[in-house]
Each structure stands twice: as structure tokens, then as C-alpha cells.
Design a protein around this nucleic acid. Structure first.
Length: 219
DNA sequence: CTCCCGATAT
DNA sequence: ATATCAGGAG
């Protein structure tokens, strides 16, 4: 496990690698962001953006998602995967935003979580990106990177990973750090072939010690 | 824990 | 062929 100094060193180096890390889900208002993040579960941002490019031309407001049959919305997002659950969630969430929140996306995370298809991770992304509230959304990348480096323990739940990061990182840096960890995981410390040979953190990375130059686990 | 699921990289 | 992708719900 890394101590605070080592964690700060890691985050500084990652910041050098990805100084401009930010949300890559294309959106132009909070409602579009909610939809985009809800669609992004177990799917790449690139694929979500490909679909929302046309989706957001057809569906502007929550009412628009309720104006079509479920099957039509399913087809419109089919290439995303998990499309039956996601289509149902988006219609229900649209209905709730109209009926319970006056047509506006709630700015409170505990309210966002009440929306179907919106869990803690998605809610953290929305408050952070759309409303500027400090938050650390722990997705697959943040979890993997934190565990490989030794910022947290392998057995930790995503909630425990989030708590650890919130404790180790100053609150004003939560959102930037969160995006930098995502970029580091997405483009460098990748799940299948991490680029350990060109990693400035190799010497203190416990997972890196177990891997060869190609980032493959040694036998 | 399982299920949902198509697209893409390896 | 298999692993992975800005997870969430039952």
C-alpha cells in the first residue's frame, strides 16, 4: 500500500501525463449528460457519442423520450448494448424528471440516485460535470488504477475506493483527479495491455512489478 | 451473486 | 475465441 506522499507523487505524475483530462461524453446540457452517462454503462464513450449524435437531434426534452413506443427507443440505442434496460430506464427517468422535478435535472446526488439507471457513479459524474460539485466517480478505470497502484486494497468495494480517494485528495481537486485517473486508466494503464514499460510510476507500482515490458503478467 | 448485450481490441 | 467497455438492478 502506498503512503500519502507516494499517492501525491502518483497523482502529480498522472497529472503531467493528462493535464487536460475532462468528460468525453458529448452533451450540451445536464439532461443530455444524464442520458449519456446512463447509456455508457459497460460501453465505450466513443460508442455512446456515436449514438447520441443522432439521438440528441431526435430527442431534445424528457417529453420526447415518452412520445415514442419503447421499442422505437430500443432500436435507436440498440448498438450500445444492454439496450432493453437502458431504454426502459430513460423513459422512466424522463417521466420522473417531469413529474417529480419540474422538468429539470435535480442537482442533488441523493435525488439523482433515485432515478432508474442512475447509481452512485453516474450521479457523481452528473453533479461533478454538470453542476461543478466536487465528486469522485469510481468507474472501472478508477477502480482498476487505484488497486493496481496500491492506493487502495484489492478487495475494496467501489464505495471504499471512493472514500479512500476523497480522504487522500483535497476536495477542490476531486473532480480533476477523478478525470485524470480515468484518462490514465483508459489510455495508459489499460485493462488488457497496460503500458508498463513507458510508465513513470513503474518503480512504485505493485502491479507493475508483476508484469513484463509488454505489460503482460509474468509467469 | 446474476443478468443485461452490442462493438471493439487483443 | 475471449476480455473489456465511464454500471445498475433484482
Amino acid at each position: 500500500m502506498l503512503n500519502l506522499k507516494q499517492i501525491e507523487y502518483c497523482l502529480e505524475k498522472i497529472g503531467d501525463m493528462f493535464p487536460h483530462a475532462e468528460c468525453e461524453l458529448v452533451h450540451s446540457n445536464p439532461f443530455e449528460l444524464v442520458v449519456a452517462v446512463a447509456l455508457s454503462a459497460q460501453c465505450t464513450d466513443a460508442l455512446v457519442n456515436r449514438v447520441t449524435k443522432t439521438l440528441f437531434e431526435k430527442y431534445k426534452r424528457p417529453e420526447d423520450y415518452l412520445a415514442v413506443p419503447l421499442e422505437e427507443l430500443q432500436q435507436d440505442i440498440r448498438s450500445i448494448g444492454l439496450y432493453r434496460n437502458k431504454a426502459k430506464n430513460i423513459q422512466k427517468l424522463s417521466k420522473m424528471i417531469i413529474e417529480d422535478y419540474g422538468g429539470e435535472v435535480p442537482k442533488d446526488r441523493d435525488e439523482l440516485v433515485k432515478l432508474p439507471g442512475v447509481g452512485r457513479k453516474t450521479a457523481n459524474v452528473v453533479v461533478s460535470v454538470a453542476f461543478g460539485v466536487p465528486a469522485i466517480a469510481v468507474d472501472t478505470h478508477v477502480e482498476r488504477v487505484s488497486k493496481r497502484l496500491g492506493i487502495c486494497r484489492w478487495k475494496d468495494s467501489v464505495l471504499e475506493v471512493e472514500k479512500t480517494l476523497m480522504k487522500k485528495v483535497p476536495k477542490e481537486d476531486w473532480s480533476v483527479t477523478h478525470h485524470r485517473l480515468i484518462f490514465f486508466g483508459r489510455y495508459h494503464c489499460k485493462a488488457q495491455s497496460p503500458r508498463c514499460a513507458e510508465c513513470p510510476l513503474l518503480s512504485l507500482c505493485r502491479e507493475g512489478q508483476k508484469r513484463d515490458k509488454k505489460g503482460l503478467v509474468k509467469r
